[in-house]
């Protein structure tokens, strides 16, 4: 039995078939969490004393920001797994994770700007968290750009995995540096009420949304990985059989 052969081609098929079984449950879970969270958050939780209804964007902004950062680690770790153990599914997961993470980073930046306009009176401030998020966005773009630049698939996967790993070492340093930079330059006009507490009636829907976003992330990641698998394995009999069966 040739094990490298198993690693290279056997594994993606196994993942594809297993994930077909999981997917329906994940769909249901994601949809119910997101619907419950957003209905509760948008319709039933009370308006904020100072911000009115505009605060409700946190139900998208906060979970997206969480997942944007976690997604980078998902990408880098699967890249490392692919690099070290030559597991094909991991390489494909890394490929799939990059655009999802970039989109989430963009969503969190965009919702932050939308929230900033009524709250701070401007679309953009150089706040520590926003700046870090922007740099994270650049890191994602870099990994994607590097992957696209290579013509040889194998090399592209390995090279972008290395870049993602270098990024993970740097992310904590970048975050700390930007925090430090911000405390140095913090303008007196903008006051952050970080000590203000959030009411349980606002917090619970937020927690549900965060869990819902995790489920959504997992769902998106699996779906995209499945697409990458089909692309990669398009010449195999099982994919051809699948295509003919569903056509």
């Amino acid at each position: 039995m040739d094990w490298t052969w198993f690693h290279r081609l056997g594994s993606p098929r196994w993942f594809y078939e297993k994930s077909s079984v999981w997917l329906p449950y994940l769909w249901v879970l994601t949809a119910s969490l997101l619907i419950a969270g957003s209905v509760w958050g948008l319709a039933f939780s009370p308006a904020d004393a100072k911000q009115g209804n505009s605060y409700r964007i946190i139900y998208i902004h906060v979970p997206a920001a969480f997942l944007a950062l976690a997604g980078y680690y998902v990408m880098a770790i699967s890249g490392a797994v692919g690099l070290i153990w030559r597991i094909k599914v991991a390489e494909l997961t890394m490929r799939a994770a990059a655009p999802i993470g970039a989109v989430l980073t963009f969503v969190s930046l965009f919702t932050g700007a939308v929230w900033g306009k009524p709250t701070w009176g401007t679309w953009w401030v150089w706040d520590a968290r926003i700046t870090s998020m922007l740099i994270l966005f650049f890191l994602y773009l870099g990994v994607m750009a590097l992957h696209n630049a290579f013509t040889h698939e194998e090399t592209a996967n390995k090279a972008s995995a290395i870049l993602a790993l270098v990024g993970t070492v740097n992310i904590p340093i970048i975050y700390k540096s930007v925090d430090w930079w911000f405390t140095l330059h913090q303008p007196a006009t903008i006051k952050f009420t970080s000590e203000s507490t959030i009411d349980p009636s606002m917090l619970y829907p937020l927690l549900i949304m965060v869990i819902g976003f995790y489920a959504l992330y997992a769902l998106a990641l699996i779906l995209r990985t499945r697409v990458e698998i089909l692309k990669r394995e398009r010449r195999t009999k099982w994919v051809k059989a699948l295509a003919l069966g569903s056509a």
């Binding site: 650049f138 870099g142 750009a145 590097l146 630049a149 870049l163 990024g167 540096s177």
Partner: peptide
């Protein structure tokens, strides 16, 4: 090193390295 085999590595190099220069 990552871009050495690419014909148009220059701009890409800046793109992937500059975020790491922030600290």
């Amino acid at each position: 090193a990552l871009t050495v085999g690419l014909r148009k590595g220059g701009l890409l190099l800046s793109l992937i390295i500059m975020p790491l220069y922030v600290p």
